[in-house]
Design a protein around this nucleic acid. Structure first.
Length: 829
DNA sequence: CGGAACCAGTTTTTT
DNA sequence: ACTGGTTCCG
């Protein structure tokens, strides 16, 4: 079984020859500005690249790698380049290859912090008491485990939830604190049991031969700290280190980097202190602020020329971020000519805001907003918190505006995917007790708490895994009635799956051996017996290869078989909730994802670290995402709704982290504004439904911080006496834009926006009925909607249907967004 | 054991 | 408002 590392990644060092050092032509340097070029060419020693938003950071970073390789300064496997996301790593790989005009073979050490750590940890697992095939638990497993521990300690779960403990432990791990290193100041945490539980948790993980995400870094740091020889080896191997998004590193990552760079100090950190927005999950802006102290003599390069945004947008963002103290300081500038100012508009409530943005997008799409026509993919709505997305989704579904939510619940975190994965995990390694516990009663097999306890007991008595315990308990009739029978069946199925798995693998191995032998020239050559024999060999070879290819799909069949035989698919087929069809769809997708791997083992190995769900961006859709998810992206048109004190800046951040929290929120505002290339539209609502309660909102303090001369204040249609909905193609509404921003009353207007009615009354909305659109539905049809679930058509207006949804109530929805219920429910597997 | 009723927590997120 | 979890009852 592959454990994800390859000894070729750690070659012995051969001294570079003089010839290799000779500089080759470097055309890639020509496209750089002086700052970027300086950052690229300073190959040796510590370098801090302070790269403002849109200043060509990735370009500089990837060119630097290309330059290291092209000049022969380093070979691919001598460069350690770490990112935070798989996406960033992927892009870097691609772009380096593009620069060099060839696929770089190798770069085995370009990856996320976590993926690099997995590789290192697999290689040295025994140094921290693990086996090389340890499993990686995700947050769900982690919480499950902690819950068990809390229960075992007899602590009231209600008052001391496992989730809270997991955050506490994650926090310690982020700070590279093993249980014995937790400071006394934290001793009182979690009812004075926190440290003790942390220690118990780490013990339990060791027993399970498992690690959580935090451990990946922590263990490696511990190994480096306690084994000088191991550290020295990697210090020699990784001759050049590059770090992306350095402002997001936590203490553990910081220590990890410092340890590795300790010898040669050839470390290049790229980041932007103004875009540090992950403090709440342990990122330390201090790391980047302190760089020059940590690495005396460091070369600091500032990338300040912005290639993304118009001057107004840039000035607005700069004005806001200037309010923060303790910055390293950058002055972004651009060559671009004047473009649109940042637009600002207030609305009555969140729903109205969503409605206005919907109309505005349609107008932008049509090119009737005094600007060019935009494609929907060029437009993004960036929100502070994901719950804000719903208003937009609801609205866009109603008007039939295609949209895509970026981020959302990640594929591999969905229940059905995790359940399926647990079945796979158990089939692959029978001693995965966590997986067993997850699926033992999913689907319902009549195996409740009592039964699981009995199984646990049986396993304990014999010192075997839960699955073996289940075999014993079932064999001895220790689980009563229906459940006992079902348990026996489960164990039998599991045996069958495992046998199939091993059989396929063994056969593959055999075939590979056969093919290898047949291809071996020593065996074939020099055989006087003639062409006949050679021909028969050729035939055998072809047959073997054909079978091997066929076996390449064996694991797909097996995965499908597991989900079928376990009754898991059936469970969702019988499920009447609106999510069920989607879940079946996801299961099919999971099987499809297996195609990219040779076997289930390989799939499980990689999947635990890959959490991004790639959605195809081929269709023309508006993007909706959080500000956090937007970091690193750019769009010609950006809507920034919900700029209200309490929501943005978020009350929670300010309560929990005070001024630090506020400054992080401000950086978030900076990130949001700097995503925009041509137009940024900031909006706020006077009233908002928060946790089911209407709240009166004050415009965000950040609005006051945008320099007035960069802003154009829009007045929502309907204000100042207008009662008709704004004609979409009418430039006349520009006339109602008032330069009230400078007036003394502006702030008061903001404060009273809730009383004044900042936008049209909702009754004034116009219903556009498209007579040409003929719906294929009739009243009484049962339909399915991706978001609202099943419902009954109760009315038809043009291309819109009025539908009484079982769960979501009465809604008007564009017909193309629903499918006939029979079709949707009938998801073949 | 499974469904109904009740209750609490929830805003940012990658691996 | 909504979801997920727990508890109570048949």
């Amino acid at each position: 079984m592959s454990h994800g590392f390859d000894e070729d990644d750690f070659p012995d060092r051969i001294p570079l020859s003089q010839q290799a050092m000779a500089m080759r032509a470097a055309p890639y340097l020509d496209g750089l500005n002086p700052a970027q070029r300086a950052a690229v060419e300073a190959l040796d020693g510590p370098v801090l690249m302070l790269a403002g938003a849109g200043t060509g950071k990735t370009k500089a970073l990837t060119t630097r790698i290309a330059h290291l390789l092209n000049t022969g300064t380093a070979r691919p496997n001598e460069i350690l380049a770490v990112t935070f996301t798989n996406k960033a790593a992927r892009e870097m790989k691609l772009r380096v290859a593009g620069l060099l005009g060839q696929a770089i073979e190798g770069m085995p050490w370009l990856g996320t912090f976590h993926s690099v750590c997995v590789k290192l940890l697999r290689r040295h697992a025994e140094l921290v008491g693990l086996k090389t095939n340890f499993t990686i638990l995700d947050t769900d497993d982690q919480i499950r485990l902690l819950k068990q521990l809390i229960q075992a300690e007899g602590i009231d779960e209600k008052r001391w939830p496992a989730r809270q403990l997991s955050h506490l432990i994650d926090g310690w791990k982020n700070r590279a604190l093993t249980p014995d290193k937790v400071p006394v100041a934290d001793a009182g945490a979690f009812n004075h049991r926190g440290v003790e539980l942390y220690a118990a948790y780490q013990e339990r993980l060791k027993t399970l031969n498992a690690v959580d995400f935090g451990d990946l870094l922590l263990h490696v740091v511990v190994i480096f700290q306690t084994h000088d020889d191991v550290l020295a080896q990697y210090q020699r191997w990784f001759r050049y280190i590059l770090v992306d998004e350095y402002q997001d590193t936590n203490v553990a990552q910081y220590m990890w980097l410092r340890l590795l760079a300790g010898g040669h100090k050839n470390i290049c950190c790229v980041g932007d202190d103004d875009q540090s927005i992950y403090g709440w999950r342990g990122a330390e802006v201090g790391n980047i602020l302190r760089f020059e102290k940590d690495f005396p003599g460091a070369k600091v390069v500032r990338l300040e020329q912005n290639y993304r945004s118009t001057p107004h947008i840039l000035a607005a963002a700069s004005g806001v971020i200037a309010e923060n103290a303790g910055r390293l300081g950058k002055e972004l500038f651009t060559d671009r000519a004047d473009g649109e100012k940042v637009r600002l508009i207030g609305h009555w409530d969140g729903e109205e805001e969503a409605r206005w943005i919907g109309e505005e997008i349609e107008a932008m799409q049509a090119g009737t907003r005094g600007m060019r026509a935009f494609r929907l993919t060029e437009i993004a709505i960036l929100v502070r918190a994901s719950h804000q997305m719903r208003a937009f989704e609801d609205r866009f579904l109603t008007i039939g505006l295609p949209y895509r939510v970026i981020g959302g619940p990640r594929f591999y975190e969905r229940r059905e995917i995790r359940d399926a994965m647990a079945y796979f995990r158990l089939a692959v390694s029978q001693d995965d007790d966590l997986a067993f516990e997850r699926i033992v009663n999913v689907p319902k097999r009549g195996l409740g708490e009592k039964a699981v306890q009995n199984i646990h007991l049986a396993a304990r008595e014999s010192g075997v895994s839960m699955l073996e315990g289940a075999r014993i308990a079932s064999g001895e009739g220790r689980v009563a009635g229906k459940g006992g029978k079902a348990l026996g069946a489960l164990v039998a199925h599991m045996d069958g799956w495992r046998a199939a798995l091993h059989e396929a693998e063994a056969r593959k191995e055999e075939l590979r051996g056969l093919i290898g032998a047949l291809n071996d020239p020593d065996v074939i050559e020099g055989n006087e017996a003639g062409a006949d024999l050679a021909q028969s060999r050729q035939k055998t070879l072809e047959a073997a290869q054909k079978e091997l290819t066929a076996l390449g799909r064996a694991h797909l069949d097996l995965a499908e078989r597991i989900l079928e035989e376990s009754g898991y698919v059936e469970m969702w087929q019988n499920d009447k909730t609106p999510e069920a069809p989607g879940r079946l769809e996801n299961l099919k997708e999971l099987i499809k994802a297996l195609e990219n791997f040779d076997n289930i083992q390989g799939f499980l190995e990689h999947v635990s670290l890959i959490m991004d769900n790639e959605s195809d961006d081929s269709e023309d859709k508006v993007s909706i995402m959080t500000l956090h998810a937007a970091k690193g992206l750019e769009f010609p048109g950006v809507f920034l709704p919900g700029w209200e004190d309490g929501l943005f800046p978020s009350q929670r951040s300010m309560d929990e982290s005070g001024l630090k929290g506020l400054e992080e929120e401000r950086r978030l505002a900076y990130v949001g504004l700097t995503r925009a290339e041509e137009i940024a539209i900031v909006s706020f609502a006077g009233n908002r439904l928060v946790f089911g309660q209407w709240q009166s909102q004050m415009p965000s303090r950040f609005i006051d911080e945008i320099p007035p001369e960069t802003v154009e204040v829009l007045t929502a249609p309907g204000l100042y006496g207008a009662t008709q909905a704004a004609p979409k193609s009418d430039l006349g509404d520009r006339a109602s834009r008032a330069d009230v921003y400078n007036s003394p009353g502006w702030k008061r207007l903001q404060a009273r926006s809730d009383q004044r009615g900042m936008s049209q009354p909702r009754e004034a909305k116009t219903m556009v009925i498209d007579a040409d659109a003929v719906s294929s539905y009739v009243e009484g049809d049962r339909v399915f909607h991706q978001k609202f679930g099943y419902g009954l058509v109760t009315g038809i207006e043009g291309d819109k249907l009025e539908i009484a949804f079982d769960k979501a109530g009465l809604k008007k929805v564009v017909a193309s967004f629903v499918t006939a219920a029979e079709a949707a429910g009938d998801v073949p597997f």
